[in-house]
Amino acid sequence: MKLIKLASITKKLAVGALAAFLLIFLPFHMGMNMCILRQDGGEWYRNVCHFMGTNYIVKCFEIILLLCIVCHIVITFVLWLENRAARPVGYAVSQKSKTHTGSKWMIYTGGIIFVFLCIHFVDFYFAKTGLTKGKYVAKVEKVDKAFQQKAQALQQGQMDEKQMQALQKQYMAIQSIPAEKRTQDFKYFVNLTKEDVNTYCGEDFKDYEPDFYNMAIDKFHNPLYVLIYLLAFIILGIHLFHGVVSVFQTYGLMNEKYAKAIHWLAVIYAIVIPLGFAMVPIHVIALF
């Protein structure tokens, strides 16, 4: 019974290729996250998020990444079903053989990571795509420009009473903006809700972006949330250790000469990446 009619090794190669893409992606993601660790009020992180959110090449990669995750999950799940079918009657005594760390739990650690990814997507990615409410950031310079344009229109008498009132209201609001809704250097309006965007930037202002920095700080104030993230990273580490070794093995790049080096590469990768990710929630809960 084969659910996907390809050679078993071909399916493994596909899983491996998708995994390799994700393995390369993770250090980038970690690097971006670690910008939060700089004590600069989130300036670096905001710049990175702006780049990631607006660059077209990045957007293409985002689609590829999502497809990769979906395909990786689908093919591994199909393989798991096929592998289960290969032993219809199980053993009475569970297996006692010495096996590779994490390999027997890949489908389970993978499942937990999938659940975590869902939480993570709802928290951050959905806010970006506008499916859930998030926090937003807008560049003061751009708000200013939009405001100036409207002010010009006002001078030329192209505005009705209602628009005039809105503009006045916006001006008043900006004058009394609380400190937590702007950066110290007054370059950005931050931590804005959707209503705040309307209040401070004007109803028709479109040039705002998700404020991941403040969303992250907000989320990680909750110790339970931090705990969920940290647990997920430990599970991720176990998954990654076997994943890295497996990519090399499946692509036939394993031999006696490199086995040790690949083992240590996997160990280092599986510790450094989750640790790098974990530093952000730990940093937030410790310092904010």
Partner: peptide, 26 residues
């Protein structure tokens, strides 16, 4: 089934065939 690189086979092979054979097969 397919190989998930668990290497229980290598641990149990009475002739101690190595996992590198599987890498070579791939």
């Amino acid at each position: 089934g397919s190989c998930t690189n668990t290497f229980a086979c290598e641990a149990e092979c009475p002739k101690q065939l190595k996992r590198t054979n599987i890498a070579r097969l791939n």
